[in-house]
Amino acid sequence: MRIVVLLKAVPVVGNEKLVDGWRVDRSAGLEANGNDEYVLEAGLKLVEQHGGELVTLTMGPTPAMEAIRKALAMGAARAVHVQDPVLAGSDTLATGLVLAAALRKMEYDLVLAGADTSDGQGGIVGAAVATRLGLPYLSYAAHIEPDPSAETIRVRRISAAGYDVIEAPMPAFVAGTQLLGEPRYPSLRGIMQARSKEIATWTLADVGVEASSVGSSAALTEVDSATPPPPRAGATIVREAPEIAAERIVEFLASRRLV
């Protein structure tokens, strides 16, 4: 199975900074988006079970490299990094355009992406990419099960009444959530192996997208204002022995009518 995982590098949650009052600062300290790591884990397991190769695809600035290297250390076979100065300030529409263009140059049976990202939280890039490529779009996956012989993919997703099972022919696009399971962490062996893995850097020209279609000038959406979240109120820390601590926590929850 050939799997491509869309991997976005985002600011560490809680450390986000804004530039020019609205744009997320991506100049340093980026890490892999949480939901992307869940689908990466699911993808790595699929390759372990069914064979094949997992490649990551990232659009982002140079500091995204750390997240890419980590994915390689976790087990991705190689990475594609679309990087171009004119991409700065691109909105979700342009992002979908670029990622779809890159995917047209890649081979895959399955494209995996996190349901959304912790910085933008638009949750629409995946759908946009799937639409542009004409792929079936299976969202909010909590479990992914391919049938390679039938060339179909089946996902399970949580619904209000239980869960839905959706099936589609491959190639397909699956957007997943943290219910896919805890991502592995890189081992020393993985980190050493990652050093010799290929990271292909593609420019906008390489994927065949016009510069006029991307960046802040081409954005159809505009951010009117952005404010960092207010600092959290002081937490109550319970340090007593487990039996007493449990009582305190129950008291606390009961006083707020939460239990």
Binding site: R69, P186, L188, I191, M192
Partner: peptide, 17 residues
């Protein structure tokens, strides 16, 4: 270097998880 920093993080993950 980057590899050494990544290994440092990985060891911490091993202990934690």
């Amino acid at each position: 270097d980057e590899t050494q920093l990544a290994i440092r993080d990985a060891v911490r993950e091993f202990v934690a998880r």
